[in-house]
Amino acid sequence: MSYEIRNVNGAAVVALNGDVDLQTSPVVRQKLLESLEGNTKVVVDLSAVNYIDSSGVASLVEAFQVSRKKGASFALASVSSAAMRVLSLARLDKVFTIHSSVEAATQG
């Protein structure tokens, strides 16, 4: 798994690439929480995620909860079919704000 963080229209976009599993989710968790510290808007680009397990989902949920406490905005963008399958099984697809693309997520 690899990640890349860039700034688009004032939002921190965290792009994840590869498998988010028990081995890699601690890094994902740390990067998401760090991004929330310095930004009021964080978008997670899941387009290149081949696999995400329950620990990866838990990292997303934790970041989501922290953002709500801080009044920051937290959204998922361009969710791969693999990631979407897990999110919908966990019934979290209705909980997260999900955009079709990073552009859509960072506008407005």
Binding site: D53, S54, V57, A58, S59, V61, E62, F64, Q65, V86, L89, A90, R91, L92, V95
Partner: peptide, 18 residues
């Protein structure tokens, strides 16, 4: 319990779902 949004405890649910 899926009506609660919180990290963790998901694994068994995912297994049983599929």
């Amino acid at each position: 319990n899926l009506s609660e949004v919180r990290p963790g405890g998901l694994g068994v649910h995912l297994i049983k779902s599929v």
